[in-house]
Each structure stands twice: as structure tokens, then as C-alpha cells.
Amino acid sequence: MASSMLNGSENLTLLRGIAPNGLGFVRSDIHGRCIPKMGLVSYARNSNSRARTLLPKCSLSSPRPASQPRFIQNKKEAFLFYRFLSIVYDHVINPGHWTEEMRDEALEAADLYDRNMIVVDVGGGTGFTTLGIVKHVDAKNVTILDQSPHQLAKAKQKAPLKACKIIEGDAEDLPFRTDYADRYISAGSIEYWPDPQRGIREAYRVLKIGAKACIIGPVYPTFWLSRFFADVWMLFPKEEEYIEWFQKAGFKDVQLKRIGPKWYRGVRRHGLIMGCSVTGVKPASGDSPLQLGPKVEDVKEPVNPFVFFMRFILGAMASTYFILVPIYMWLKDQIVPKGRPI
């Protein structure tokens, strides 16, 4: 079974463990030592089929310190962060990391083939991803959920989303009944979840049997400076972690598709903020088989002002860095002749 993955702007068909040259895979000089060897890894565990995708036998990146503090450490700080970022989000963040072309490519994996589907867009923010969803599904059947009223206010202003249900809510404690939705979509949100496994478990619960979840998010850097800023800012999961989270939640036919701005030419060492689209199918009705303990954070717990201020400074530096990275890559794409690695 072949798996289609997007590396940068190239859509690759990977079959029988054969990887093409020149795009950061075997014998490529784009990634250099970052991805030295690739191997087939099975990750769809069911009796009928074993879907396989091409992933490295070694780790995609250096280990991410589990205890490394991040600027967006909890939902309360994320709430404050987006109170200001919502003003410029669509005009500053999206052009460099989440273009319309990337959005539409990533949503192909969600298989939005019926306008009557019930879709929940979790962490929908300003509704940028929802605009891609309503191209395929009637807006009246789409719910946008986010914890930030400031982001949602921007979504309410967009004419194509007027018929959408727009509600405030928590990705780790969704206000939907079990077996509710045909599609669960979340883009650019998982990096702020204190417990990604809990959020993906909730995605499983709210879906109907045979329905599909699609989570779009960042990938961990391999370049040392990008790793540093990623660790002090927010969660950049490894590709293997996404797959493991989906499998533990109970999803089957788990697939990962790489995405990225076309000007990256396949380079992923800086940890793309929107770097992959991961999907999984719910095989049985009801709640997830995964049992979890209490939440890891209490949103009512007061934030230490000094600690928050220090993380705010580091976070501001990191966010500035990741705004400049796509500009740097775009300039390289303009200067370096086409066909040559950058």
C-alpha cells in the first residue's frame, strides 16, 4: 500500500521503501546528516490491512527535553497571547506558515466529500482553516471551537462563516456528545495543548464510527538554533509522536502527510510550524479505549507574574525568530537557482 506524503512543495509517492533523491531522503544532500537512513514503518494495526509509510529508522530530530519550559505553558497564557496576536494573525503569521495552498493540500487528507457532513474545527481561531472546510461542507454543519474569544471574533466577521456555529471551548474537554461528528479537524492548535494525548483521545470520542480525525501541526526542528527557540516557545512534536498519540487513542489507518510552503524546497530542518497533516479513522463507536488520569494543569491556578514575564520575553524572541525563518527561506528560494538544494 502506497502512502502519499508532501515534503515541502513536492508530493511524493513512496512504495516498497524506495525514496527519491534530492528531497531530503536517501542520498539527498538537502537534509545532510539530519535524516541518514529511511525505513518502512507499519502504523495501521488492524486485521484487514497494514498501511505503511516511509519514516526514518533513526529519530527525525534530537530528543526534545520533556521538562523544557515553553512560553505558552498553559491555556491561560495562550489566552493572553492570542488576545494580542488575533489582531495580526491572518496578516502576519499565516502568509509565512499557513498559506491557502498549504491549507487546501492538508485538508485533502480529511476527505471532505459530502456537504452534509458534521464537522468540528477545534482550535479554529480566526477561521482561516474553516474557510477551507466550507469549500466542501455546508457552513451550517460546521462548528468552530476555540478558547480565545478574540480569535473567534475575527472568524465571526468572515462572510462565508456566518452560518457556522461558533463556540468557546477546551480542546481537551470538548462540549460535544460521543459519536457526534463525521470529521474532526484541528490546525495549528496542538502545539498549545498541555496534554496532546488527551486532546486526541477527545477527538476519538466525539467522532462517529468510521469517521476521520485530521490534525495539522508543527514538526520538531533538526537545526540547533531552531531547536532552541522551539523548546522555549511551544510544542513541536516529532512525526513519530503524532502517530503514537493517534494509535494509543484507538485510531486505525493512521497516516501522516508532510506539508510546507513551496519555497522551502523540501527543507524541514527549521521545524515547520505547519509541517504535517495526520489522519486516523475511528473503528468502533463509543469512547476511546485509552484511560487517562486527571488533567495535567489547572486553568484556575494563578500564574506567577515573574515566571510569566520571563517566558514572555523568551517567547517573543522565539516567535520573532520563526516569523523571520520563512522570510529567510523565501529569499534563498529567489536567489539559489531552481533545482539546487537550499
Results as ranks from 00 to 15, higher is better:
56 P>E: 05
57 K>Q: 12
58 C>G: 08
60 L>S: 04
61 S>T: 13
63 P>C: 01
64 R>A: 11
64 R>G: 00
66 A>G: 05
67 S>G: 02
67 S>E: 13
68 Q>T: 10
71 F>C: 12
72 I>P: 00
74 N>S: 07
74 N>Y: 02
77 E>R: 14
77 E>Q: 13
78 A>W: 03
79 F>R: 12
80 L>V: 02
80 L>E: 14
80 L>Q: 10
81 F>G: 01
81 F>C: 04
83 R>E: 15
88 V>G: 02
91 H>G: 00
91 H>S: 15
92 V>A: 15
95 P>S: 12
95 P>R: 11
96 G>H: 09
98 W>A: 12
98 W>I: 06
99 T>M: 11
100 E>G: 10
101 E>I: 10
101 E>F: 13
102 M>F: 08
103 R>E: 11
104 D>V: 08
108 E>T: 14
110 A>V: 11
111 D>L: 14
113 Y>M: 14
113 Y>A: 15
113 Y>T: 15
114 D>E: 14
116 N>R: 12
120 V>I: 15
120 V>F: 06
120 V>K: 03
122 V>T: 05
123 G>P: 09
125 G>R: 08
126 T>H: 09
126 T>C: 11
126 T>G: 12
128 F>P: 01
130 T>Q: 06
131 L>N: 13
131 L>I: 01
132 G>Q: 07
133 I>Q: 09
133 I>E: 09
